[in-house]
Design a protein around this nucleic acid. Structure first.
Lengths: 216, 216
DNA sequence: TATAAAGTTTAGCCATGGCTAAACTGAAAA
DNA sequence: TTTTCAGTTTAGCCATGGCTAAACTTTATA
């Protein structure tokens, strides 16, 4: 089993990928200094988990990707499990899973997946990778890219930013909710939606983080 | 929050205490070398968690004891939670809780305790310390110290030795089971019990690890 | 095209928590 | 009382994963 730090680096590279990720970008995502990233990326390259081109960036090898997917699977299974059993709020799930994911054995992972009936989405709507890294489909598109006056269903919301999370919560936006975009602000990209007969204005930055599906 | 290593040292000192614990004893319990223990004990003393007399031994301060009880509480709540929700076998619980206990936030600890209805015993019958370190009573006595021909109820079984655990499991010895000691081998201390109308011979070493209560 | 700025890497430091080998203590045996 | 030896501590090493400061690339700007 890899250390917490290594798992965190692989997970961040996966989230920021598949493009080459710069030292600075990775550093700010992990909340460490760029010099620490360079050092660690060299070690990961040595271990065959990462490809690194100096002054250009780093990306996961297939092996690194599989390991990252394993961490993501544990994270999303834990979120689903904690939500189902303890009824934790969507806003608490991420932080708890973030710490527990590194301490989950394969056996416990299997037991949880089995208990939950091998779910394909976590409570934020994010796809849960399979035990061998298979990432379930998904043609979900950013709400910010959708046409007006079509019936849309919210599929995925972000989990890492607690400010965004609580805004979404209080505005009733979570997976499964249906909405229609009624107008778009040409100037700043903000959109006006109808949700459950309520009018809600969503800023473009948030709209780009919410993924929806479009009825045929 | 203290590191995994520090929490492990405190927990071991608690389990081996309250007497002064020698360097060697602590080292073998933690599976590290004595020199590593001496170094760490000095740090813990510096931190006010441990009292150390050179060449004599170490014991927990009140602060160290409270921290140890907090780790034990998390461990035993996790065992209970994993048993109830996932139905894990008593033999798997210990190892999983051992890793997860260090990653459990106060909030999640509270949520689990609440979900379980603030249990006072874990699946091995061990008392679960309260949120402020209160250790629920218990006049349970080692099976090896009990008189013959009295009705006894198994209250606590050990959790750390998987060989002992599986022997107990296959012989139907777990908390709640009633038994009677019919005879004792004067030579090696082994005892012959009647459990559920079956005869079971229990070695003295195992009998000293099983705690029972005696009906008035 | 030369230079400034932004981003990356290197060098060298620190704390943590292991290790081995050697020195030291104290209690039991000679 | 002296010696022995088991147990403890010290000294000094190592890997991990952070950090800062300084050097180096690359890219963009003048």
């Amino acid at each position: 089993m890899y250390s917490v730090a290594i798992e965190d680096y692989l997970k961040s590279l996966w989230k920021l990928g598949p493009k080459d990720v710069g030292t600075q970008e990775l550093a700010s995502h992990l909340d460490v200094k760029p010099a620490s990233v360079t050092k660690m990326v060299l070690r990961l390259t040595e271990m065959g988990l990462v490809d690194h081109t100096p002054y250009k960036g780093a990306s996961l090898t297939r092996q690194g990707e599989l390991e990252a997917l394993s961490v993501v699977r544990r994270h999303r299974l834990l979120e689903t499990f904690l939500s189902q059993t303890l009824g934790l709020g969507r806003d608490q799930l991420h932080a708890e899973a973030e710490r527990l994911e590194h301490a989950l054995s394969k056996e416990l992972e299997d037991a949880i997946a089995n208990y939950l009936g091998n779910p394909v989405r976590d409570p934020h709507g994010h796809p849960i990778p399979g035990p061998n890294g298979e990432l379930p489909g998904g043609f979900d598109i950013p709400l910010s890219d959708c046409p007006l006056n079509k019936s849309l269903t919210v599929m995925q919301i972000p989990d890492y930013d607690s400010l965004v999370s609580s805004w979404l919560e209080t505005n009733g936006i979570f997976p499964g909710v249906k909405l229609i975009i009624e107008s778009r602000d040409d100037f700043d990209g903000g959109i006006n939606c109808k949700i459950d007969n309520n009018e809600v204005r969503i800023s473009s930055s948030i709209a780009s983080l919410v993924k929806v599906s479009q009825e045929d």
